[in-house]
Design a binder for these strands. Structure first.
Lengths: 148, 148
DNA sequence: GTGATTGCAAAGCGTTTGCACCGTA
DNA sequence: TACGGTGCAAACGCTTTGCAATCAC
């Protein structure tokens, strides 16, 4: 189980990664990166916009979209698919992790699956498909939301 | 493994279900139901519109959306989430089945998972989440697409 | 006949693009 | 200084809504 403690490192890492990829570090970008890198929740563009404007008031929504595009391309963030929409983003994780999402507050945790390879192998054989990727996501209510 | 053979029954069943729910059976609805109930692929609104107009030429796109709404509400169809979009629909299945989707032609198969309960139990205990639902989807290339 | 259903047109919403100005490197 | 990045406004694509005409029951 891996959660998102408040984490200055991630903020710094993302900025370094952007710079290393030839992108300039600007006020709007820093604000968007800070909002998303510090969040344990999946956030959509508008939520990021609202959060990031607390830090950089003249931010435009367009810059949010353009920054998200770059962060996704660098695989620093990933899109979260949920029954009620697929517009939210969360910090990405390296390796293949699976998502556990709170349906009330949006909090996301990552967990490692049991070894699902035997299942995939079986399905591949029975179906004739060549399997390239998989999604395993759990939806529920987190401890905090259950109590409150 | 369960696929979608051409299946007149499903067409008839859906129409009966619509009628039983108090909806009227009209030309536009019949055309949309036929297009989607006979398809083994995930189809989006425009694709359904194009297919259904072969049967009912004056069909409006709006009626496609309104029919999809009702079919989804009756759980006769379900939305398919994929990395490149979440606008497509496929015939729903009763019980908890998992999806196997061809990334080239969109063909969908259903499979039953191994018993994943022990995994969910473990994750629930470690995380404190109450787990309500899960998604397991495999993406790949179907036999037919692999052959060319 | 009556009320649900239709297609059209327009509105709505989230996202992307064009452009002139600005600011990082 | 050069050119990548910015915000604004407009365009875009998909979906929903308002409405008068139509059609299933």
């Amino acid at each position: 189980m891996t959660s998102f403690p408040p984490c200055d490192d991630r903020n710094t890492d993302w900025l370094a990664c952007l710079r290393a990829s030839g992108y300039r570090l600007t006020g709007p970008r820093r604000a968007v990166v800070e909002a998303l890198s510090q969040s344990g929740r999946a956030l959509n563009a508008t939520e990021i916009y609202d959060l990031a404007r607390e830090r950089y008031a003249s931010l435009g929504l367009v810059s949010v979209y353009r920054t998200l595009e770059k962060l996704e391309e660098l695989e620093l963030i990933q899109r979260v698919h949920q029954p009620d929409g697929c517009q939210a983003f969360i910090a990405g994780f390296t390796g293949h992790q699976h998502l556990l999402i709170c349906q009330q507050c949006g909090h996301v945790e990552f967990f490692e699956g049991d070894d699902l390879e035997p299942l995939f192998q079986r399905v591949a054989e029975e179906s004739g498909y060549q399997i390239c990727d998989h999604w395993l996501q759990l939806f529920g209510v987190c401890d905090q939301c259950r109590r409150g």
